[in-house]
Nucleic acid binder design. Structure first.
Lengths: 215, 215
DNA sequence: AGCTTTCGCTACGAGACGTAGCGTAATGCC
DNA sequence: GGCATTACGCTACGTCTCGTAGCGAAAGCT
């Protein structure tokens, strides 16, 4: 949502139902029309609100779709399956399942593309999509460390570095496989990828290989 | 380019200079305006051709931008640096350098987004961008195998599986780091990522076929 | 020459954009 | 209850881009 003025205590309040209807209509339109052919007028009609109402709440198509898509990724959960491998595999498959939905893939990449020229939009994406899901990496990592599957803290000076790296690798690989290569992210692929990732994480921290292994 | 009718041997030939001018103008417009505000009329003006000429050669904005962006990625080369780690690191940095250019990041993600609803467009992207660069993985892998850094053939039944996996991981991670996380792909990051990837590749192949690491 | 295809130019209807203006509806405050 | 304030629905508008059609001229081939 946009910054609802906090001092706004008087006057008619904004309809929360309208917000939900608009976001749902946006996702519906993404399925039917895709990003490029999606028009705000059409979304307004689907939601049963006036076009002007839409413009009063969102600055434009970009912001609207970010909010509509962001809700999809809140479904993600870290399944406590007892092992790091199973945890990662589970998240990868969940993530892929969301990306398989047309409203997600059609909208997400488009706003990411737009965000390359719009700093505010990119911040919005990071806040409402990316950083929210980074918790999965942090939590899965903590669990693995508690189980002894990963060493406690490989680099105390930059604890966030490793998390960011892992996140970019997981999210990047799944997105690339699903949307660019356009091949299925099935159990077979998820297992291969998970094996690769875990071996990379453990080996890099256990045995000191050729020279300095950056972390 | 589009399918130039092969039986077209008579009549005035198409100007090759116009093709180059149009593609250059497209990249220029991507820098100045970005994907969403780029119009074909503007590109035509910049290229010094009529708008109708543009429509005679490309079906629309999507196809035009794919061709304009594809040329950028042909610069990629595999630096024979003597070690697998250095090879990967070099390619990652080259790839990141291209992605840092506004005409690349603004255009590439947009056409990928569009390709989620356009099968023909996705095929075009794969042909002219993705699959062309997959050679880097194949070649780097062969070199590493010749050096003994990687075992000969981990999975003879599906030789392309591993290459595809590696490619998705590399390309996906770099793109995600550069465009979504929007943090620099510098030497530090490239080195961390390379270490993670190599350890994952070597370990994954060793304990699947009980050989020892060539080290 | 004659034939064929491309090119530049102009013009056009269609559709989406984003905004303005108006009257009405829903709340909080006195 | 009445009043101020804000949100809402609706209509209408100028502006822009789209993609195409039609024309005459240019540039190649045989």
């Amino acid at each position: 949502m946009q910054s609802r003025s906090p001092a706004s205590r008087t006057g008619r309040p904004r309809s929360a139902a309208a917000d939900a209807a608009i976001l749902a209509a946006t996702r519906e339109a993404l399925v039917d029309l895709g990003w490029s052919k999606l028009t705000l007028g059409d979304v307004a009609t689907r939601a049963g609100v006036a076009k002007t109402t839409l413009y009063r709440r969102w600055a434009g198509k970009n912001e609207l779709v970010v909010d509509a898509v962001a809700e999809l990724f809140d479904e993600l959960e870290l399944p406590d399956s007892g092992s790091l491998a199973a945890d990662i595999e589970g998240v990868v498959l969940q993530f892929a399942a969301i990306l398989a939905r047309p409203e997600a893939k059609s909208g997400l990449m488009a706003v990411v593309a737009e965000s390359t020229r719009d700093e505010a939009l990119r911040a919005r994406i990071r806040e409402s999509v990316v950083d929210r899901q980074k918790r999965l990496v942090v939590e899965g990592r903590a669990r693995a460390q508690a189980r002894g599957e990963l060493p406690p803290e490989p680099d105390p000076s930059h604890p966030a570095r490793t998390v960011d790296l892992i996140f970019d690798v997981i999210a990047g690989a799944v997105v690339h496989r699903a949307l660019v290569s356009a091949e299925p992210v099935d159990t077979t692929w998820a297992r291969s990828f998970t094996a690769l990732l875990i071996d990379g994480m453990t080996a890099a921290t256990t045995h000191s290989r050729s020279g300095q292994v950056a972390q």
